[in-house]
Simulated assay, not measured.
Amino acid sequence: MSGRMEGMRVLVVGGGAGIGRGAALAYLDEGATVTVVERSPRHAETLAEETRGRSLHVVAGDATAVPVLYEALAQAVGPDGRLDHLTCCVGVFDHYVSLRELSVEELTDAAEEMWRVNVLGTLVAIRTAWPALHEGGGSVTLTLSESAFHPVGGGVLYGSSKWALRGVVQHLAADLAPSVRVNGVAPGGTTGTGFSGLASLGGATSSVGAVEGRDERIAAGTLLGVTPTPADHAGAYVYLADPQAARVVTGLVVNSDGGRALR
Rank of each mutant, 00 (worst) to 15 (best):
H57L: 11
V58P: 04
A60S: 10
A60I: 09
G61S: 02
D62F: 09
A63S: 15
T64M: 09
T64H: 08
A65T: 07
A65N: 09
A65V: 09
P67H: 11
P67C: 11
V68I: 15
V68T: 15
V68N: 06
L69E: 05
Y70G: 07
E71D: 13
A72Y: 03
L73M: 08
A74G: 14
Q75E: 03
Q75F: 02
A76D: 04
A76V: 02
V77F: 01
V77L: 03
V77W: 02
P79T: 12
P79S: 15
D80S: 14
G81E: 06
R82S: 05
R82M: 00
L83G: 02
L83M: 06
L83N: 00
D84F: 00
D84V: 04
L86Q: 01
L86K: 03
C88A: 07
V90A: 06
V92A: 05
V92G: 03
D94P: 13
D94V: 10
H95N: 12
H95W: 13
H95Q: 12
Y96D: 15
Y96K: 10
Y96L: 13
Y96W: 15
S98P: 04
S98H: 15
L99I: 14
L99P: 01
E101L: 12
L102E: 10
L102A: 11
S103I: 13
V104S: 14
V104K: 13
V104M: 13
E106V: 10
T108A: 15
D109R: 15
A110G: 14
E112C: 11
M114Q: 14
R116T: 05
L120T: 12
G121M: 09
T122N: 08
L123F: 11
L123C: 10
A125K: 03
A125T: 10
I126S: 02
R127T: 09
R127F: 08
R127S: 12
A129C: 02
W130Q: 13
A132W: 02
A132Q: 00
A132H: 00
L133E: 06
L133I: 09
L133F: 00
E135Q: 13
G138T: 04
T141E: 05
T143I: 10
T143F: 01
T143Y: 03
E146C: 08
E146L: 11
F149L: 08
H150V: 14
H150Y: 14
P151A: 07
V152N: 09
G154W: 08
G155R: 03
L157K: 03
Y158M: 07
G159V: 05
W163N: 11
A164M: 08
L165A: 05
G167K: 12
G167R: 12
G167Q: 11
V168I: 14
V168Q: 02
Q170D: 10
